[in-house]
Structure formats: structure tokens, C-alpha cells
Amino acid sequence: MMPLCESCGRAVWYPAPRCPSCASEKVEWKPLEGTGTLFTYTVVHRSFFPAVTLSGPFVVGLVELDGAPGARLVADVDADPNHVKVGIRLRVRFQDIGGVRRPVFEPVESTASSR
């Protein structure tokens, strides 16, 4: 789901009281297809959280979701760090972590690693 402006159709991301594009107050959370395109990414090799050690490099990126023009979602990308590329198509999967549903994006063509 994403907050979308009913007047101009753009996504209002990060959330704001009104649509920054057209000042409309008609901004509603609407369901999306859960697919999108990887706009950019980085493969992270070290942690910036104190006392957190990484088990290995991970991919995090910005996804342009289908149906949410004007927004980029920060996304955990479950892809092989050696094969990830700008422009690949992704689909969301929800992990259940202790009752919390956490979105993870996987490549649509099966280049995904198992994690």
C-alpha cells in the first residue's frame, strides 16, 4: 500500500499532510500490485549500527513501484549481490517475523538467492 493523491494521481512519499504536487488533501492509502523496478541500489559490506556485525554483504535499494508514480521505496532486495542490476523487475514477498509482516523484494526472473 502507498498513500496516493486522488487529484493528481501521484504517490505522496514520504507521508505528508497534503499532496506536495497539487496541495490536495485527498490522499488515501491504496493497495498496489507489489511489483516495481530497481532504481538504484548498493551492496553493503559493513554495518553502521554499533555492535552489529554482518553475516555477509546484503543488497538494499530504491524501488519505483508500479502504480505509485513519483515515489521510491527503500527496499530490502533479496538478490545475489553479484547479479543485481539497476532496472531489474522486482516483486514483493512478505516475511512474518514474530507477527510483523516485513516486505522483501525479489527479482521476478529467478536470479534470486535463498536467504
Partner: peptide, 10 residues
């Protein structure tokens, strides 16, 4: 941050 997007280098 919940997705690991944290730190100016990223």
C-alpha cells in the same frame, strides 16, 4: 532503517 538503509555511505 528496518531494511538496512542506514548510514551516509549508503
Amino acid at each position: 532503517m528496518p531494511f538496512g538503509w542506514y548510514g551516509q555511505p549508503l
